[in-house]
Nucleic acid binder design. Structure first.
Length: 472
RNA sequence: GGCGGUAUAGCCAAGUGGUAAGGCAGAGGUCUGCAAAACCUUUAUCGUCGGUUCAAAUCCGACUACCGCCUCCA
């Protein structure tokens, strides 16, 4: 089966055809770094990391670029309140971003460019748009002539005339006076006194929001690249504007496939989690309590276009399901000690079939829900196999290897012996002696004590083993 | 107002024409000293109304509810 992706530009499922064979270039809009990322931000990061990992699973070499918006109105406001510089604020939260996303097992991007490191390129880009007649400067501001870009509105599926009336309610009077047309948007903003600024042909100022992504994506990925991703809220106007800017400048098609992830929602009526609504939970805070693996699993096992409802029940369910897979993996590993050195061709064939089904599911616009179902199938196959009286090592290893391979796409690293604890080992030994002596009061006491610490004991025909419970 | 999305069992959720995948929770069972884990069995007619069809959750029409974008937002 061919990989199909849903292109937001056409609102259709399309066969994925890379610009260069075996290579994927993708740009994903990153956060504005004035706070810790919240669960909604993380969802986007995780969604595209999962997509990237699937491309890599398929054998693609992925060039993955994701930016940091490190100067804008909110940054400036926060800086004024906190009495620090814009770059200090940015540095702090970029560092936090890397900590949080690393915990969520997000692969590092090939490149994480910052807007403020690309000011010269941004100025050159804006100048070029002015030269081409797509932009004009007014009192130190530069605006893009949206209507001049013939397909403006196509990505957001918006009609320009209805847009105009909608937009006019929200644009400040001052800005409206300067603009030739209310739908025009800022490429460069003149600095107010005391604000961070850079010199430009139009006076001191700073880049508008949309321009940085046009500049950095084409700079690092070329004028035309495969995939551009981000939250669905960015489709219009942010991505619309990026597209207008980039195609006006280069005269080439900017992006081949636009992918947009759905929101994280909260509450009974599924409200969007967002900073402006104030209903957000930062990853930084959440990870004090919940295992990062659980959070990662919860987010990456929902298809990227679907909303993720954020709730304790959802976290619990993710923990249970993750545990199911982890347990199957451990069950298999446990039987390796008494396995015969051989394989079972019939089971091996079943494993391959599950993997093929998995791939079919994922090829359908990264349908992770059907994909994870196949992983559960594989886990069950493993569990059933583990209970056979006679097992073969090569088959066990095959199942384990495939479990690991498939779950890694979701950002889960299956491993054995995640921790060593002599004290626990000693208690297990004591408990086994108590059990042998039929002193079940003592043996149960030990088991309860360990459970208090989040350590679960399991007695199996091959002996007693222990695991740590996932925190939720 | 314009545009877009969603609506399937207690919960999460697959499924785009042939009589509803999977997971969680629940019930029963096997295993266990008891557990845990695992395995087996078991639980829906698909928001409402109408239409097309031999046949619809799946196509068409109307409606309802919720969410989102049009302003900063992943």
């Amino acid at each position: 089966m061919v990989l199909k992706v849903y292109n937001s530009l056409t609102n259709k499922l399309e066969n994925f055809e890379p610009i260069q064979a075996r290579k994927v270039s993708m740009y994903v809009c990153g956060p504005t770094v004035y706070n810790y990322i919240h669960v909604g931000n993380a969802r986007s990061v995780v969604a595209f990391d999962t997509i990237r990992r699937y491309f890599e699973y398929l054998g693609y070499d992925v060039n993955y670029v994701s930016n940091f918006t490190d100067v804008d109105d909110k940054m400036i406001k926060a800086v004024a309140e906190q009495g620090i510089t814009v770059s200090e604020l940015a540095d702090k939260f970029i560092k936090a971003y890397f900590e949080d996303t690393k915990a969520l097992n997000v692969e590092p991007a090939t490149k994480n460019p910052r807007a403020t490191d690309n000011i010269a390129d941004i100025i050159a880009f804006v100048s070029d748009l002015i030269d081409k007649g797509y932009a004009y400067s007014v009192d130190g501001n530069v605006y893009y002539r949206a209507r001049k870009f013939k397909t403006y509105g196509e990505l957001g599926h918006e009609d320009l005339d209805t847009l105009e009336s909608g937009a006019s309610q929200h644009v400040s009077k001052e800005e409206l006076k300067q603009k030739e047309d209310p739908i025009d948007f800022a490429l460069w903003k003149a600095a107010k006194s005391g604000e961070i600024s850079w010199d430009s042909p139009w006076g001191k100022g700073r880049p508008g929001w949309h321009i940085e992504c046009s500049v950095m994506s084409t700079k690092y990925l070329g004028d035309n690249f495969d995939i551009h991703g981000g939250g669905i809220d960015l489709e219009f106007p942010h991505h619309e504007n990026e597209r207008a800017q980039s195609e006006a400048k280069t005269g080439e098609k900017f992006v081949n496939y636009w992918l947009h992830n759905g929101f994280v929602t909260v509450g009974d009526d599924d409200e969007k989690m967002s900073k402006s609504l104030g209903n957000f939970v930062t990853v930084h805070d959440l990870l004090q309590k919940v295992d990062p693996e659980v959070l990662r699993f919860m987010m990456s096992t929902t298809q990227y276009r679907r909303p993720v409802h954020f709730s304790q029940a959802g976290i619990n369910e993710a923990a249970t399901n993750l545990n199911k897979i982890q347990t199957a993996y451990r069950n298999l590993d446990y039987r390796l000690q008494d396995a015969d050195a051989d394989n079972d061709p019939k089971v091996d064939q079943e494993v391959r079939q599950i993997q093929a089904d998995f791939q079919d599911a994922m090829d359908d616009d990264f349908n992770v829900q059907n994909g994870i179902t196949e992983v559960y199938e594989l886990a069950k196959l493993g569990n059933v196999y583990s209970e056979r009286p006679v097992v073969f090592a090569d088959t066990i290893k095959l199942i384990m290897q495939r479990l690991q391979q498939l779950t890694s796409i979701f950002g889960v690293d299956l491993k054995i012996g995640s921790f060593n604890d002599q004290e626990v080992e000693n208690l297990i030994e004591e408990r086994n002696q108590a059990r042998a002596d039929k002193n079940f009061a003592r043996s149960d006491e030990i088991r309860d004590e360990l459970k208090e610490q989040g350590i679960i004991l399991e007695d199996t025909p091959q002996g007693t083993r222990f695991r740590r419970e996932n925190k939720v």
